[in-house]
Amino acid sequence: MLLPSFVFIIIVTGFPLLYSLYVSFTPYELLKPNSLIFELPKALNNYTRLLNDPVFWKSLGNTIIFLTVTVNLEYFLALGLSQLLAQVTRGQAIMRTMLMIPMMFAPILVGFQFRWFFNSNLGLVNNALVSLGIIGEQTRIAWLVDEPLGMICIIIATIWMNLPVMTIILLAGTLSLPQETYEAADVDGASAWQKFRFITLPLLAPFTYIALTIRSLDVARAFDIVRIMTDGGPARRTELIWTYAGRLAIEDTKFGLGSAMSWITVIISVGFTVYLFRQLVKSRIVE
C-alpha cells in the first residue's frame, strides 16, 4: 500500500536531494562546468563558509521568527474561524467556497498585488489611511521597508493566502468528531466554552498537529510571495533561508553553496518536524 507513494517521492525528491547533497561538497558554479569536482580536503568548504556567514544566520533567524509568528497566528485565527463555521446553520457551502478564494490566486500574483497595496506613495493601504486622516501626506508609512513592518507585511500576505488550509483541516476535523460526546455533555449541562475546552480541543489535537506540521513545513519553504514582495530586503531585513539560498544558487550561480544551504535547512526542518511528530504521537496516546 505504501509502494506507489514511495516510488513517486523517491524519484521526484530523492534524486534531487542526493544530487544536491553531492553538489554541496563541491565548489560547483552553474556557468563553470569544470567546477563540479569533488576534492576531499575541500569537501566541507561550503558548509564552513555558511556557518561563518552572518547573512546565513540572519536569514535563519528571520525564518524562525517568520515561521513562529505565521504558524501560530494562522492557528489561532483558523481555530476561531473553523469553530465559527462549524456553528453556522445556513450557507455553509457558500462560506467554505468563499473562504478558499485567496488560495485560488497564484502566490506570485498575491505577491505582486500585496507589494502594490503596501506601496508607500500609491498603494491602497497608505491612501486609505490618509483619506481617513490617520496619517498625513508627509508621514506616509514605509510598510515594506521599516523594521519590523516589512516582516509583518509578508506575514499578513502569507496568512491571508493560506488561512484556508488550516481552517479547512480544523473544520473537517471538528466535523468528524463524535456527536455523542457532545450530546452527553449537553445532558450534563456543559457550557459552550466547557465543551470547546474539554471536548473539542483535546479531540482535535491530532488534526491540530497535522495542520501545524504541514503548515510549518510549507511556511519554512516560503518563497514566491516573499521573493516578489521584498525579495529579502531591504538590507536583509526580511531575508529568509530560501530567498537567500535561491539567490545564491541560481542568480549568483553558486549552486554548490546554495545546495549546502539547502541541506543545512533540510536537517533543521527535519529536527523540527520530529519534535512536532512526537507531539502528535503523544496526543494520540492521550486520546
Partner: peptide, 24 residues
C-alpha cells in the same frame, strides 16, 4: 522512519528541487 521520510520530502521548496529535477 517511513513517516519521517515523507516529511523530509516536504521540506524542500520548488526553487531547490527544480534544477536537479530538470537535469533528471
Amino acid at each position: 522512519a517511513a513517516f519521517l521520510m515523507l516529511m523530509l520530502s516536504r521540506t524542500v521548496p520548488g526553487v531547490a528541487l527544480s534544477l536537479p529535477l530538470f537535469l533528471l
